[in-house]
Design a protein around this nucleic acid. Structure first.
Lengths: 193, 193
DNA sequence: GCCATTTCTTATCAATCGTTATGAAATGAG
DNA sequence: CTCATTTCATAACGATTGATAAGAAATGGC
């Protein structure tokens, strides 16, 4: 009934995500996005409404890929310290892409975009909650299993380790090497006692 | 011998710093800067060469004001845990300005600008070193005084607490309240044993 | 094989970007 | 008072921004 689309919207979104992730929101132009995705302007606007709409969609895509993989590792059985350090390892691996995107896109958004964009702020907020609650659930399970002392404040620890995850994004984008990040993780995990 | 300048370069720099700090580099225009500082374009260009030059100068100014105050508190006598939590308190107070600038300007620079600007990256790097070494010196002094176990790895702890400081900037800019930050500090300080 | 419909390609829009030029205003030396 | 010098206030520069318009190209229903 009409001319078929010549691109896969999800592939385009993946590439746009990498562009925003690498260069940030304001330093990425529509032309950068057409070059990176191979999709013409009409295609991007018909699918994502605006540059901002594409960016917000990219934040969702980041959660559904990078964060999803981290949470999956977090839920694995075993000592809670192993689950956390395993999840951090997955996170670090995912935060260093072959396409120049380094660090945590959600942390980047929190500092660059969210303070002046309610929509982005809501997505950052939801992400922080998602991560904190997943970690909290894992800590609760460990406490129930006797892996943690019964008086442990799992909510407070969940906040701490969620923040630790964002810190790793900061450190990676700031050019610290893996040994540096590993030392940070080791020190942070020491709060488990 | 010539018409006198009508503005104080340091005052202008302070106001420009607040603008960059609040809105970031790419979302701040020269016109934003002239409006915020009250200085005309000629004045800004004659003093700071370019938008980028002004930004780099603002990063230095941030170190010389905000960070300087934090390090001064860090050096105060008393238990090392008090010195650290006192320094964190000073940092938090300074990271919430009356002019809309929230968080740590250096952390913002690390994520938004440094990955694509060598000059900014060098300043961020130097700042991380400055903070880490100051904390390390304080920890060393505490260890010498017997306030910390002799086998304590003060270098590793200094990295950890420096990162904790940047994390506070992240949390504040992400809209967390003081209680949230305080819980994070309490948990982080638990690594001291 | 036509036609309505959607996408593709390309050009273009006004607005804003960082930066620079231009002429008036203000100073102190002579 | 004159003049060289510097800053001030504006205007303007070409380039780029996000977004849209216009016409050619491609499809399936009929």
């Amino acid at each position: 009934m009409a001319r078929p689309r010549e691109f896969d919207p999800r592939e385009a979104l993946d590439k746009a995500m990498l562009q925003f992730w690498a260069a940030g929101y304001h330093d990425t132009s529509i032309r950068d996005l057409t070059a990176r995705t191979g999709v013409n302007q009409y295609g991007l606007y018909s699918q994502f409404e605006s540059k901002r709409g594409l960016y917000l969609a990219a934040l969702d895509r980041y959660r559904d890929t990078v964060t999803r993989a981290v949470l999956a590792r977090l839920r694995q059985a075993g000592p809670v310290a192993d689950a956390l350090s395993g999840a951090f390892a997955v996170l670090i691996a995912r935060m260093r892409t072959e396409d120049g995107a380094v660090g945590c896109m959600m942390a980047n958004a929190a500092l660059e975009v969210a303070p002046q964009d309610e929509g982005a702020a809501a997505k950052v907020d939801a992400h922080m909650t998602l991560l904190r609650e997943a970690i909290g659930a894992r800590l609760d399970a460990a406490r129930t299993a006797g892996d943690l002392a019964s008086e442990t404040d799992t909510g407070q620890l969940a906040e701490f380790f969620a923040t630790t995850a964002y810190s790793l994004g900061f450190l990676l984008r700031a050019g610290r090497d893996d040994a540096y990040l590993q030392r940070h993780i080791t020190t942070a995990l020491a709060v488990l006692g």
